[in-house]
Design a protein around this nucleic acid. Structure first.
Length: 816
DNA sequence: CCGATT
DNA sequence: AACGGCTAATCGG
């Protein structure tokens, strides 16, 4: 017996059913001296039966108590959104008993609803026990074993407490990546062996393992005799390095399932869990996961896709592009799956290239993780979940978990997830969003940029918006109202609601942190952590509005979402009107911000801000983001007026910002995007239409003489559905069909790259996959008219430059 | 040429 | 499994 407290950082949590049939929680953690600890705890799973208003709660509770398998019941007074309800908490030994009880309760009278039965046990345990992953906790209990597998200490918990909110420092991170042969169109785990595996970890750890001898190999290489030995060496390397966090890019659905398949083929173990257990994969089409016991496995591509992608310029989320954008390093070679075979069967030089390629992938993954891990830690702390979960969550899940975690503090019952039929119904309802002010197409000078800081979160907070305050009985229709399309809503004026309190807290905390960051040097140790926290707070606050309008949300509230956008429209309109009054000229506005010509009134900016801000309810605030030297707002194709959400700006520092225009859109050929980017830059920086025209003419000459790379003509598109679900065959669908015939695994999410070739008939009838196209194939006229000209004609039109002159005349320079 | 689809 | 707004090419009748 030892009841001394042991301090530790929880890394992950799981549960199993003990021999006695009870729930046995396992917490895997790291002690202060970096020893591995596993803590066992017990937990009684439960759900809540909400008692019908008319029913006799005492009678009902008695009946439930006598029901078979029920271990315990508790009657509680709770809030269910706005209703005061009696909730009977029903406990059972394990989830399967609980399910049986639920079935029996179907026949009981007096239960209006079952709640909190659809939350995973791990999450419930963490919420109810207030254990925050990665922050310092203490456990008292019986030390069962010293050492078992890789685990140094096993404790049966009697008491677990939070000690502080300090995060675990300097986790040991290991990134890995495998290479396989590829005999078909994609690697097949039944046929193609793993040939190489690279690692890149904390403290400059590097290793590449392979089973083919290579001369003049770098010192970080390890050579083995074959694939089975390679896999054993992978296991050894992981054990030896002993990572707390193991990361891959696509490792949930590629690397791990692949290795697991190969070990099954050889009937060999893959015992990399702390307790010697095998990885657990859940293969759900497109969104599988691989979980290890103890080691936290992150497939960082999931976090990139779910959370970071809206903030990335790159539309494609492959490691090469994401690496370049996030950490400035891309792949060492542009390799297709099948060209790995060629290098593998090539010269010693080729093999060295493959080694470098393999190691580079792990290096990029490691550096991406270094960059995003602080944000994940902060999110984990705020929503109280392990990194394993945080790394794989979408916006709606992050917001929902945040609300779920805090609901008990407000005595709120956690509503159940909507049924599919309910979701379908919700999806039918749409509502009006942000206001967009149509600009006059033109080139403008000296443009001020204004926007409301976190507009939607501020509105939620300022107007006390939320499902619990909507049209409350305590205030009634005589209170201040928000009008939306003839309908009127009000939000409680007496008591702050659960949602708005939480959002206000996020907004306030972020404001304070931003203030501290202003006085913190980037090199300070606290800078990165505070910056990550600020990002995490912003992410959660900004996603909350979208969550309220999300059909799958537990706390769905269409009226709230409508009220938020309606108020947003009102406040952006106020900016436009006030700017006019002070003699400024607003040229463009979108949802929460506006561009305003400062003209000769720059000195009045402060007055303008004060005028608006003095009318705003706390915590709303209009901010001035400085000015741009010049801006190009493009016109629409049809009719007069400017296009919304499409413009280019030139900052005083010479940086160019592009929004919405073709040059940053994925479904255009690189050649068209580059042309537009160049033309915009020449116009913005030099204001020379002739020089821009010269550039275009030159390019058209090159296209005519086929002096271009096929890659520059490639048009990429992502399939938004499975092939058979398309109602008509657009060019990208036609190209995807070709890919399918070639043996590619074509389904929703497949990225197809194609070229439009010469010939007659529909465009969809003359596409070729980029990989099959040659430079003599492409349709010169299509690329001139539909890609190059199309990307720039609106710019030339604006300056009354005749389009025909771009096409017909050869460049004066080359002509000469 | 127009509406639907992407 | 976050929202809506927006433009424009292409298909298919």
């Amino acid at each position: 017996m030892n009841s001394q407290e042991i301090k530790f950082f929880p890394l992950d949590i799981s549960y199993q059913i003990s021999e006695e049939g009870g729930v046995e929680i396992s917490i895997f953690g790291i002690t202060l001296d970096r020893k591995k600890i596993r803590i066992f705890d017990s937990f009684l799973p439960y759900f809540c039966a909400i008692v019908d208003k008319k029913a006799d709660a005492e009678k009902l509770i008695q009946k439930i108590r006598e029901t078979e398998l029920v271990v315990d019941v508790k009657l509680e007074s709770k809030k269910y959104i706005q209703d005061n309800v009696k909730a009977i908490k029903i406990f059972a030994k394990n989830p399967s008993d609980l399910r049986q009880i639920r079935e029996k309760l179907r026949n009981f009278e007096g239960i209006s609803e079952i709640a909190e039965g659809d939350i995973s046990l791990r999450k419930k345990y963490l919420i109810d026990n207030n254990i925050t992953p990665y922050t310092l906790c203490g456990v008292e209990g019986r030390i069962e074993r010293r050492g078992f597998g890789d685990i140094d200490l096993t404790v049966i918990a009697e008491k677990i407490t939070r000690i502080s909110s300090d995060l675990i420092g300097n986790p040991r991170v290991l990134a890995f990546d495998i290479e396989t042969l590829c005999m078909g169109s994609a690697p097949n785990a039944k046929e193609d062996p793993v040939i190489m595996c690279s690692f890149y970890g904390s403290n400059n750890f590097k290793r590449v393992i392979t089973w083919k001898p290579i001369r003049n190999a770098p010192e970080y290489m390890r050579f083995v005799g074959g694939e089975q030995e390679l896999i054993n060496e992978i296991i050894r390397t992981i054990r030896e390095f002993d990572p707390e966090i193991l990361v891959g890019y696509g490792s949930d659905f590629f690397d791990f399932p692949y290795i697991i398949n190969r070990t099954k083929k050889y009937k060999m173990p893959l015992n990399i869990g702390w307790d010697g257990s095998e990885p657990m994969t859940r293969l759900r089409l497109g969104r599988g996961t691989t979980k290890l016991k103890g080691i936290v496995h992150l497939d960082i591509s999931q976090f990139i896709r779910n959370v970071l992608s809206p903030n990335l310029e790159s539309e494609r989320l492959d490691l090469n592009r994401v690496g370049k954008e996030l950490v400035g390093i891309g792949k060492s070679l542009d390799l297709k799956d099948t060209s790995i075979n060629v290098l593998w069967d090539g010269t010693n030089e080729d093999l060295l290239k493959l080694v470098e390629y393999n190691l580079r992938d792990s290096e990029i993954v490691f550096k991406i993780v270094e960059k995003v891990l602080p944000t994940q830690f902060q999110l984990a702390k705020i929503i109280n979940l392990p990194l394993f979960d945080v790394n794989r969550m979408t916006y709606s899940q992050l917001v929902e978990q945040f609300l779920l975690k805090n609901a008990p503090d407000f005595n709120q019952v956690i509503p159940r997830r909507p049924l599919y039929s309910e979701i379908k119904k919700r999806r039918q309802q749409t509502y009006v969003g942000g206001f967009v002010f149509e600009p006059e197409a033109n080139l403008y000078e000296n443009i001020g940029s204004f926007d409301y800081r976190s507009l939607y979160p501020s509105l939620i907070s300022a107007y006390n918006i939320g499902p619990t305050t909507l049209n409350c009985d305590c205030c009634g229709p005589s209170s201040e109202k928000v009008e939306v399309d003839g309908e009127e809503y009000w939000f409680c004026g007496k008591e702050d609601g659960f949602l708005s309190i939480l959002i206000r807290d996020l907004v306030d905390r972020r404001k304070r942190i931003k203030q501290i960051l202003k006085d913190t040097k980037k090199t300070d140790s606290s800078y990165q952590e505070l910056n990550a926290l600020s990002y995490a707070l912003k992410t959660l606050a900004n996603a909350t509005y979208g969550y309220l309008g999300f059909a799958g949300a537990r706390w769905y509230c269409l009226e709230c979402a409508r009220a938020i956008t309606a108020l947003g429209r009102k406040y952006i309109d106020q900016v436009i009107k006030t700017a006019h009054k002070l003699g400024f000229e607003p040229i463009y506005a979108d949802t929460d911000g506006a561009f305003i010509l400062l003209k000769n009134k720059e000195g009045q900016v402060d007055k303008f801000l004060k005028k608006i801000n003095s009318t705003l309810p706390d915590p709303m605030e209009l901010e001035y983001h400085g000015k741009y030297k010049r801006g190009l707002f493009l016109g629409k194709k049809s009719g007069a007026g400017g296009a919304k959400k499409r413009y280019a700006l030139l900052s005083d520092d010479g940086d160019i910002i592009l929004k919405g225009i073709e040059a940053i859109r994925g479904d255009w050929s690189p050649i068209a995007k580059k042309t537009q980017r160049e033309v915009v830059e020449i116009i913005l920086k030099e204001k020379s239409v002739d020089k821009a025209a010269e550039y275009v003419k030159n390019l058209i000459d090159k296209l005519k003489s086929r002096d271009v790379q096929v890659y520059d003509l490639a048009i990429e598109a992502t399939l938004t559905r499975d092939l058979r679900n398309y109602e008509f065959k657009g060019p990208h669908v036609a190209a995807a069909e070709i890919a399918k015939r070639k043996g590619y695994f074509v389904r929703r999410g497949f990225i197809v790259s194609y070229i439009v070739c010469s010939g007659s008939g529909k465009i969809s009838e003359r596409v070729k996959l980029t990989e099959d196209a040659r430079v003599q194939d492409y349709d010169i006229n299509y690329y001139i008219n539909h890609q190059i000209i199309r990307s720039v004609y609106k710019i030339f039109e604006l300056f009354n430059y005749p389009i025909e002159k771009l096409k017909s005349g050869q460049s004066e320079l080359t002509n000469w």
